[in-house]
Amino acid sequence: MPVIFLIIVGAAAGFLATRMMHVRTDVVTTVAIGIFGALIGGMILRFILMLTGIAFGFVGAILGAMLLIWLYRTYIQK
């Protein structure tokens, strides 16, 4: 069940992050960005703020996805 929840939250976070940063990607890439962003952002927020809950996890997922997009644009896509 947590894996399915991670995919759903990751898909939503990836969708919002790609739209906020004006990146047009396919569905698989958007979901992957969201899932990895959720992992990165969730770990960062939990470590720094020591907060739990769905709302903070979702915010962390969006921030992590945006960080991943920025890193991709800065260092890989040229």
Rank of each mutant, 00 (worst) to 15 (best):
residue 60 G to T: 08
residue 62 I to A: 03
residue 67 L to Q: 01
residue 65 A to K: 01
residue 64 G to H: 12
residue 61 A to F: 12
residue 20 M to T: 09
residue 2 P to C: 02
residue 39 L to I: 10
residue 21 M to N: 06
residue 27 V to F: 07
residue 38 A to V: 05
residue 5 F to S: 11
residue 17 A to G: 07
residue 38 A to C: 14
residue 36 F to R: 08
residue 61 A to P: 00
residue 66 M to I: 07
residue 23 V to D: 13
residue 29 T to D: 14
residue 54 I to C: 03
residue 75 Y to N: 08
residue 3 V to Q: 04
residue 6 L to A: 09
residue 60 G to I: 05
residue 6 L to Q: 06
residue 9 V to T: 06
residue 51 L to K: 03
residue 14 G to F: 13
residue 55 A to D: 02
residue 24 R to C: 01
residue 78 K to I: 00
residue 7 I to M: 10
residue 74 T to P: 05
residue 42 G to W: 04
residue 6 L to W: 01
residue 53 G to L: 01
residue 73 R to D: 15
residue 43 M to T: 10
residue 36 F to E: 14
residue 31 V to K: 01
residue 36 F to N: 15
residue 18 T to Q: 10
residue 58 F to P: 04
residue 37 G to H: 12
residue 73 R to W: 00
residue 26 D to C: 11
residue 76 I to A: 14
residue 31 V to H: 03
residue 66 M to R: 04
residue 42 G to E: 08
residue 63 L to H: 03
residue 47 F to A: 11
residue 32 A to W: 00
residue 66 M to F: 00
residue 69 I to K: 05
residue 24 R to D: 09
residue 78 K to F: 01
residue 4 I to F: 13
residue 70 W to I: 14
residue 77 Q to Y: 11
residue 60 G to A: 11
residue 11 A to G: 15
residue 69 I to H: 02
residue 72 Y to M: 09
residue 21 M to L: 11
residue 22 H to N: 14
residue 4 I to P: 02
residue 59 V to Y: 09
residue 47 F to I: 03
residue 54 I to S: 11
residue 41 G to I: 13
residue 21 M to Q: 07
residue 33 I to V: 13
residue 3 V to C: 02
residue 18 T to I: 03
residue 57 G to Y: 00
residue 15 F to C: 08
residue 25 T to M: 10
residue 48 I to L: 14
residue 16 L to P: 00
residue 68 L to I: 15
residue 18 T to W: 04
residue 57 G to N: 07
residue 36 F to T: 14
residue 70 W to R: 11
residue 2 P to G: 06
residue 47 F to G: 09
residue 36 F to G: 15
residue 71 L to S: 14
residue 2 P to E: 13
residue 23 V to W: 05
residue 59 V to Q: 04
residue 36 F to V: 15
residue 75 Y to T: 10
residue 7 I to F: 10
residue 30 T to D: 15
residue 46 R to L: 07
residue 23 V to M: 12
residue 4 I to M: 14
residue 1 M to N: 05
residue 44 I to R: 02
residue 39 L to Q: 11
residue 44 I to P: 06
residue 60 G to M: 08
residue 45 L to V: 03
residue 70 W to P: 05
residue 49 L to P: 05
residue 42 G to T: 08
residue 21 M to K: 06
residue 78 K to A: 08
residue 59 V to T: 09
residue 48 I to S: 13
residue 12 A to G: 08
residue 58 F to A: 12
residue 41 G to Q: 14
residue 73 R to F: 01
residue 24 R to W: 00
residue 21 M to Y: 01
residue 47 F to V: 04
residue 57 G to D: 06
residue 72 Y to N: 13
residue 65 A to M: 04
residue 1 M to S: 07
residue 71 L to P: 13
residue 7 I to V: 11
residue 54 I to P: 06
residue 54 I to Y: 09
residue 47 F to C: 05
residue 78 K to P: 09
residue 67 L to T: 04
residue 1 M to A: 05
residue 47 F to Q: 04
residue 39 L to G: 15
residue 74 T to D: 05
residue 52 T to G: 15
